[in-house]
Each structure stands twice: as C-alpha cells, then as structure tokens.
C-alpha cells in the first residue's frame, strides 16, 4: 500500500503533488455542486409556496427579527474574510497568523450558532415550531403559517448543520496546521475547507433576504 499520503509526498497514482492538489480541489468544486443542488430543493419549495401563499410569507417574515439576521450576515461575512486570510498566510508561510485567523473563523461560526439559538428560542417561546408541533394557532392571521416556519426551520436548520460541519472541518485543519502538515506548497485541505466555508456563506447570503427581508 503506497497510497498513504502523509507529509509532502503524493499518492502513487498521481504524477506529482501539484497533480494531486489539482485533482483534490477539482473534487471539492464538484462536491460544492452537489451541495448547491441539495439546497436548491429547499429554495424551489420556498419559491413555489411563496407564489401560492404570498400573504402567509408576508405574515411569517414579520415574526423574524431582521436585526439578528443582519448581525449573523456580518458575522459570516467576517468569518469568510478570516478564512480567506488564513489561506493567504499559509501561502506566505506565516503559520501563526494563519492559525489565529482559523480560530477567529471557528469563533465566528460559534457566534453565528449562538445568535441562531437565541432566534430559535424566541420562536419556540411563541409556539412557532415547525410542522405539527406548531402551537400558535390562535394568534395568527393565515392558517398555513406553519408552512412558512417549516420552511424557515428546514432552511436555516440545514444551513446550521453545514455551519457546524464547517466548524468541525476548520478545527481539523487547525490541528493539522499545528502539527506542521501544511506549507506554502501543500495546503489542499485548507483550501478545500475554505471553499466549503465560503459556500456556507454564499447560501446565507441568499437565505438572509429571502427569509428576513422579502415581504
């Protein structure tokens, strides 16, 4: 078995580590494609139901606090910046600066999840649960409001799972960085995780106006 690629050697079926890097990043892009199509299902459901029940969506968005949404947008955008910076620092061989930026990224992810937690809590407090746990039937104007919150929880929930996954992956590359496994010419994993993190940001960029702003 000569396929184990530790340190800076490349697996036996590649010509060079550059070849391996290109194949790896290509694989990550393809993976991002699958992520986008997976989320597309939710976006299509959103668009179709918004077409059928515009008034429900109008009522639903009033229950969401756009300030918290905007705060989360800024947090995620900032984490995207630090993620990009950490790759930059690895490439100019400044592992310490890269490490700090990775840790800030994780912290931002954590901050995002805390804000999400506060938001979810407020919804639950009003009985605005997803699906048949929805209990706020007395106060609402439109009977299918539960549908909006099902969409809200599915979309932000799946996105939240991706944020958590991203945090885990960043933690993993941070540990490998500490072990000195990355250098200016060997940073495929960090770049791949970075692409994933930017995609998570990208999806939020659409979720924010769709859920919090559009009326």
């Amino acid at each position: 078995m000569s396929t184990v690629s530790s340190g800076h050697t490349h697996a036996h079926h590649f010509e060079s580590s550059q070849h391996e890097h290109k194949a790896g990043i290509h694989g990550v892009w393809l993976f991002l494609v699958t992520e986008i199509l997976m989320f597309s299902g939710l976006f299509v459901a959103y668009a179709i139901f918004k077409g059928v029940y515009p008034e429900v969506f109008h009522e639903g968005h009033r229950y969401l606090d756009w300030r918290l949404g905007a705060l989360n947008t800024v947090i995620l955008l900032f984490s995207s910046l630090t993620m990009a910076l950490s790759i930059h620092y690895i490439r100019v061989n400044k592992p310490k600066a890269a490490m700090i930026n990775l840790l800030i990224t994780i912290a931002c992810g954590l901050g995002f999840m805390i804000v999400k937690y506060i938001e979810y809590n407020a919804k639950f407090h009003h009985g605005l649960y997803p699906g048949h746990f929805f209990t706020a039937h007395e106060h609402i104007e439109h009977k299918n409001l539960a549908l909006f919150f099902s969409l809200y929880f599915c979309m932000t929930g799946l996105h939240g799972i991706h944020v958590l996954t991203g945090m885990g992956l960043i933690g993993w590359v941070a540990i490998r960085l500490k072990k000195g496994e990355f250098g200016p010419h060997h940073y495929t994993a960090v770049e791949g995780v970075g692409l994933f993190w930017h995609l998570v940001d990208l999806i939020w960029i659409y979720l924010f106006p769709l859920l919090y702003l559009v009326s």
């Binding site: 459901a45 139901f49 699906g131 048949h132 539960a146 549908l147």
Partner: peptide, 8 residues
C-alpha cells in the same frame, strides 16, 4: 414530513 409534519 413524517417526523415533524412540516407539511410541504
């Protein structure tokens, strides 16, 4: 849909 009854 089965577990939470999201209703889509």
């Amino acid at each position: 849909e089965r577990t939470l009854g999201i209703g889509f």
